[in-house]
Write a protein that binds this DNA or RNA. Sequence first.
DNA 1: TTGAAAGCGCTACCAC
DNA 2: GTGGTAGCGCTTTCAA
Lengths: 334, 334
Amino acid sequence: MNSPTNIKQLADLAGVSAGTVSRALSGSGRVSPKTRERIITLAQKLGYQPNLLARNMRMRKTSTVGMLVPLGHDDLQHLSDPFFNTMSGYLADALADQGYDLLLSRVIPSDGRWIENYARSGRVDGVLIIGQSNQLAVIEATSLAYHPMVVWGGQVSGQHHCSVGSDNRAGGMMAARHLMERGCQRLAYLGPVEGPEFGARLDGVRQALAIAGRGEELQIMPSHCEPAAAYDDALGLLRGLPVMPDGIVAASDVTAISVIRALGTMGLRVPEQVKVVGYDGLPLGELVSPPLTTIDQQLRHGARVMVDLLLKRMAGEPTSSVLIDPQLIQREST
Amino acid sequence: MNSPTNIKQLADLAGVSAGTVSRALSGSGRVSPKTRERIITLAQKLGYQPNLLARNMRMRKTSTVGMLVPLGHDDLQHLSDPFFNTMSGYLADALADQGYDLLLSRVIPSDGRWIENYARSGRVDGVLIIGQSNQLAVIEATSLAYHPMVVWGGQVSGQHHCSVGSDNRAGGMMAARHLMERGCQRLAYLGPVEGPEFGARLDGVRQALAIAGRGEELQIMPSHCEPAAAYDDALGLLRGLPVMPDGIVAASDVTAISVIRALGTMGLRVPEQVKVVGYDGLPLGELVSPPLTTIDQQLRHGARVMVDLLLKRMAGEPTSSVLIDPQLIQREST
DNA sequence: TTGAAAGCGCTACCAC
DNA sequence: GTGGTAGCGCTTTCAA
């Protein structure tokens, strides 16, 4: 009993035309209840599965959204990074609730049209970009002509593209202020110092210190964001410091975890001797010991917002960018 | 300057036929070098992007693989679980290296045909199933008629479907043996006790103890595997124990982390008072403090194996299931 | 209410 | 080496 592979076969078996089967199965269009019933039953019995590619092509709609991660200069293993994983999980959940699938593609930023080429390939109804990396110019240019696109990342003034992200400057300030409130005297920042997101976090830290009249005292340890090398990086940076800080703002949760490990290696206890605050609010921050104090970007919520905005844009509605209020989650690393 | 939306438009602009453009762009078929060059240049200049849906439909090949997670009875948020995240990241990486994209779908196991319906929708060239959950019967039945499918999970004797997974029994034995070697006197197991994977791990633990002539002494704490409730679960289970173990085999890394936290809450130090070994070898196990001793399933390698096997099966070649040797990674929790 | 036919954009076959 | 044409499986007119 082989299943019919196309609608015509099923139609022949049912003694009707292909069009009638299509109308019966899709529920749209007028079909007599009797034939409809008969066709549906037959389809079920024979295990007929419509070819979705053909349907998608004809209807110009795929119920699929692509997620793209611009990888900038680093090498290409980032899809296993905890941040992207967490994000893709939340996005997949949020999309699934709306009847959409998530297509994970690794596209290498080549020319200035890589996003648009991908988006216009017909395989996806819209595109979610996670992180601007060094592709801000391409993203901005693309957004002028291609609308069903939402970007996770920082907001730059006057931008045309629709973005969702936390207020990185405010988050940086919260982190620094929290450490000062906890009595830290010598603050440090460890992480990337450039880019729309990390740069703003660092600015926030600086600003909080400046407001407190302690603008001079921040030690900055610039690092790349490669998870594999993060621990070694942190250890090297901390050892190279002239004076050991007692409060560290890490640029991300993954970084914070590496920092805590490096401090442990150096024989320093967290939070007693050094306090560390992370950034992101990844679930794994709750699992580690000590559980991580962090600036929560509310990624689960953020993912839902991204999906909502994207669906609106796919429907042709206008949207504004959304700035998510970061929230301090105090746990035991501070 | 609007990009041509189909091959015919581009062909008209180039003064050739659609077929010629197709041959020129795809590189297959004979085209004079001169016209080929001209067409490629023009396409690039105009930003022509072929419609991949149409191509896929015509060629009956999508260069996309679907990843399905049977969700069994639990609710539907599992795509954000660290294990699935890690796995999907590795799979996406391995697939990308072979020119494939990963389609993440949340399909709810309804009837016995949910896998086959998905697979035969034309959207994917093959299917990867992560975890058998309670869908072993459906998987096994599907594998009889649908071949491009590879499953991550335990191996059951006489199975027809192609699976990749670690030797869970051996892994369980390794964990127990390691704890005994480290001098533990009172062993316990915490985690799910049923299912093709967890059940085998527990069996392995039992067997190692039996071989050592200490078959009686294992305390078993059956728990579900919901990450959200894992910590509370662990705390409750540990508090309910008549006698505190000094060595715990956790069913997964996520569970192990919760166990360590719960022990901390109870004022017990790891590894001095209680040693804990996890299972999975997730990267996050290295990040936590203390870094986790674990039975490494070598997921990155496993993902590559799954992809290799799937590609073979997609090409019609026969494959055998693969049992991955688990490896003990000793870190600082034991 | 139903059937026939056109067409989505592409590739492959067969002529020339 | 190139053009015309058929056809992938579906939905959606337009007639009957």
